[in-house]
Design a protein around this nucleic acid. Structure first.
Length: 259
DNA sequence: ATGCCTCCCCGAGGGAGA
């Protein structure tokens, strides 16, 4: 089973590039971030015509997450637990019903800049809520994953120019500590498990020719529970589509699970 | 680089992103 995460930076702006990638890559499940659309305006037909079930958790203007799945989806839940006053659409989860059930969680973790400030406080608070959900997910002892745009550069080797990010919310020690506090509960970073080498990125800024200079960062991650990690066959980044027509600033990261 | 693009809101220029 091929499962991808992809921050598309607006469904309207990606109405060509996203289907083109789907037709080429043929993922079974896709976790989308930054759909920047309300549920009613999401172009479900594009995906249903290709055999995907579609579940969205959108909001007007920005944020918004979705799940596409060729297999049935059950027990869909929207919103990260822990703060009923949080109205930002950054979390959706569901069970993919195949030969064996797989719980998939799609997330768009807050950027947090500028740090310090209220946006950074929100990021750290959101990560603490994420830690609680992660802990419960591990306790289930089922194959499960949390995948999406984490807005975290885990290690210096995950940035082409780590020195440029030292004061950034994506790389501050406090941000990385919060990320590792979650991973170290018992998750496997699927990409690092398959590819130990530095120099692999999932985001390149639109500005200053970042793609042409390969000035990237790796911030889109798939974290697997032990029961899912046991099924991991491969993990790759489809970097080449960053150079295609009207790309997102992120590219897809995907895993192949033996399920 | 406290921002060189791009996306969204709308129907001008500002917020947000990373």
């Amino acid at each position: 089973m091929k499962i991808a995460t992809f921050n598309i930076n607006g469904i309207k702006a990606r109405a060509q590039a996203l289907p083109a990638w789907l037709d080429d890559a043929q993922p079974d499940v896709v976790l989308l971030q930054e759909i920047k659309s309300v549920d009613e305006a999401f172009p479900r037909d594009i995906f249903e015509d290709r055999g995907y079930n579609v579940e969205t958790h959108g909001q007007k203007g920005f944020n918004g997450v979705a799940i596409l799945s060729k297999l049935p989806l059950e027990d869909v839940r929207r919103g990260l637990p822990g703060d009923d006053s949080d109205e930002q659409a950054r979390w959706i989860e569901a069970t993919v019903v195949g030969t064996r059930a797989l719980r998939v969680c799609g997330l768009y973790l807050p950027n947090g800049n500028p740090a310090p400030g209220p946006k950074y406080d929100y990021k750290l608070a959101w990560m603490e809520r994420l830690r609680h959900r992660a802990r419960d997910l591990l306790a289930s002892e089922e194959p499960a994953l949390m995948a999406g745009d984490y807005n975290i550069i885990p290690q210096p080797e995950d940035a082409a120019r780590p020195e440029a990010w030292h004061k950034d919310a994506l790389f501050l020690p406090q941000s990385r500590a919060a990320y590792w506090r979650i991973v170290n509960l018992g998750f496997t970073d699927a990409f690092r498990a398959c590819q130990p080498a530095p120099g692999h990125y999932s985001f390149w800024d639109y500005q200053a020719g970042a793609w042409n200079r390969n000035d990237g960062i790796r911030i889109d991650h798939l974290l697997l529970t032990p029961q899912a990690a046991d099924l991991l066959r491969d993990c790759r980044i489809d970097a080449e589509i960053r150079g295609y027509e009207k790309p997102s600033d992120h590219v897809p990261v995907w895993i192949d699970l033996d399920i």
